[in-house]
Design a protein around this nucleic acid. Structure first.
Length: 511
RNA sequence: GGCGUUAUGGUGUAACUGGUUAACACGCCGCCCUCUCAAGGCGGAGAGUCCGGGUUCGAGCCCCGGUAACGCUACCA
């Protein structure tokens, strides 16, 4: 009864499917790298698909930033929204008809059904279940509605979702890195496949697209393991062959939790703007989870006989390698499954190695392309023109835009009439507002002022605190303009680091 | 709570198909070099492989049972 698997001679096709909901994520780059390598090593195709089915979280600039960041790292794709390809469109928002047709198939063959509850009712159900200490999941109330009832609801124009009808039993699937994994269907929810707005959820879109795009290997993050049974059920419901599944470990914060912006910079834009070299970044990602054998271990078997008077292996031979090296030697099946900590300290060391390896010319060029680019300097110049009397003073006022270790002393950042605690609490509020605001002067100003009013902080106190955090001083070029120039990801990182450091300081003070 | 996954120094990894004193790198400490700081060189501390059983002449690798961490548990992906 199980579907035939993808056979070994099917041309390899893999994909990454990022969501344009914010800054491009290091996790996307990591999964992208593994997919890229897998395809390149097998003469396969690497597809980029944009999963923009969640209208509520959609960020307009995000897609382009995803393109830019992946290209910056050298992870180029063979098919995608911008380069086209034989299985397009590659943007899910442009494939809604396809999903609608396919979900109709499921409705027709009885593997899916309409459910007419609204979000409030579902939330209610959830709360009741939680209160009764039951696992929160859909109770299947509309699983077996009569045709008459359905028609009535439809005639009323009542909104509905389409859910997967999970049968009794269990599903076992093979994870290429872990062998068989079994889930009892008691633990698989009747997943929503089509939202009431007519857009599919990830689960439906992902299966339909992977099949239609002839994806042979689904290489994605471990967080998807729990929903794989739903996907398998969907493949079965359509009568399609299963792809191979490879679930990669999740990148972690220092405390081992899933990597998050609260605890670690995760934006690829941040890394680019903060002056990390793409070669170092991609190298570092290649270190995560292993999979990269030492250069001489996989040597042809013939000369394995000789003792190979093993000279101490230099770090430059084991930890430092290029994307091309990875294509040549990386082995996905050797990936270690423990979640690797994304350790900035080692990334910075690696980046330093790459910087030192540059010729003086190349080093100068990379400075001029990034931290000292014409574009950057041109944005900065107008901010200081009226504030300096000799050109030599340029650095006095702009040093914070070129430095990475800004930390204001307490007497600078705490307003006269505020306590340390209040100030830090307010700064945390500022961070939350900044995270949620478009990075333009016109959006930032009202957002910050509104926050100040809500907490009875004067504009002066409000802006001065932020100024202190960003510049380390109470005197600087105009705050909002400076923030815009400095960029969202680096500004947020600076505020987060400030809060983090202050938190550690106050903890150290307590005992 | 339920389900799933994972587990080697602080961190990233290595250890052939069970085989000897668990290796390399980052970080940390010390020394050398040096006008300073880096870089570089040399050296050091730091794990007995999550815990408890078992199989075996022999277990980080195999088996059983725990524990912990993480993930999922949405009309998000």
């Amino acid at each position: 009864m199980t579907n035939p698997s993808i056979t070994t001679d099917t041309p390899i096709r893999v994909r990454i499917a990022p969501s344009p909901t914010g800054d491009p994520h290091v996790g996307t780059a990591y999964i992208g790298l593994i997919n890229f390598l897998y395809a390149r090593q097998r003469d396969g195709k690497f597809v980029l698909r944009i999963e923009d089915t969640d209208r509520t979280r959609f960020v307009a600039t995000s897609e382009q930033e995803i393109f830019n960041s992946l290209r910056w790292l050298g992870l180029t794709w063979d098919e995608g929204p911008d380069v086209g390809g034989p299985y397009g469109p590659y943007r899910q928002s442009e494939r809604t008809d396809i999903y609608r047709q396919h979900v109709q198939l499921l409705l027709d063959n009885g593997t899916a059904y309409r459910a007419f509850e609204n979000p409030e009712e579902l939330e209610d159900l959830r709360k009741r279940q939680l209160a009764a200490k039951l696992p929160p999941r859909y109770d299947g109330a509309h699983r077996e509605l009569s045709q008459a009832q359905i028609d009535t609801y439809l005639a009323e124009g009542r909104p509905f979702v389409i859910r997967l009808k999970v049968p009794a039993g269990q599903t076992t699937f093979r994870d290429e890195l872990r062998d068989d994994i079994t889930f009892d269907h008691n633990n698989v929810d009747d997943q929503v496949l089509m939202k009431s707005d007519g857009f599919p959820t990830y689960h439906l879109a992902n299966v339909v697209d992977d099949h239609l795009m002839r994806i042979t290997d689904v290489i994605r993050a471990e967080e998807w393991i729990s929903s794989t049974p739903k996907h398998v059920l969907l493949y079965n419901a359509f009568g399609w062959a299963l792809p191979r599944f490879w679930h990669m470990p999740l990148l972690r914060n220092l405390d081992k939790s899933k990597i998050s912006k609260r605890k670690n910079p995760v934006s690829l834009i941040y890394y680019r703007q903060a002056g990390f070299l793409p070669e170092a970044m991609i190298n570092f990602l290649g270190l995560m989870g292993g999979g990269m054998p030492a250069p001489n271990t996989s040597a042809p078997t013939d000369d394995a006989a000789k003792p190979a008077s093993s000279a101490p292996t230099k770090s430059s031979e084991t930890d430092i390698f290029s994307l091309a090296d990875m294509v040549a030697r990386f082995q996905v099946e050797n990936i270690r499954l423990g979640g690797p900590v994304f350790d900035l300290t080692k990334l910075k060391w690696l980046n330093g190695e790459y910087i030192r390896a540059l010729t003086p010319e190349a080093f100068y060029k990379s400075l001029r392309d990034t931290i000292l680019s014409d574009a950057y300097l041109q944005q900065i110049a107008p901010l200081v023109q009226t504030r300096i009397e000799t050109l030599g003073e340029f650095g006095n006022l702009t040093h914070f835009l070129f430095a990475d270790d800004i930390m204001p002393p307490a007497d600078v950042f705490i307003p006269k009439k505020r306590t340390l605690e209040d100030t830090l609490a307010f700064a945390a509020e500022q961070l939350a507002v900044l995270e949620a605001t478009d990075w333009t002067h016109d959006a930032l100003e009202p957002a910050l002022k509104q926050l100040g009013e809500a907490h009875q902080w004067s504009v002066k106190e409000n802006f001065m605190l932020l100024r202190a955090i960003l510049t380390g001083s109470t005197m600087s070029p105009p705050l909002l303009e400076s923030m815009v120039v400095f960029g969202k990801s680096r500004t947020l990182d600076r505020v987060r680091r400030f809060l983090d450091t202050q938190k550690k300081l106050s903890q150290a003070r307590k005992p």
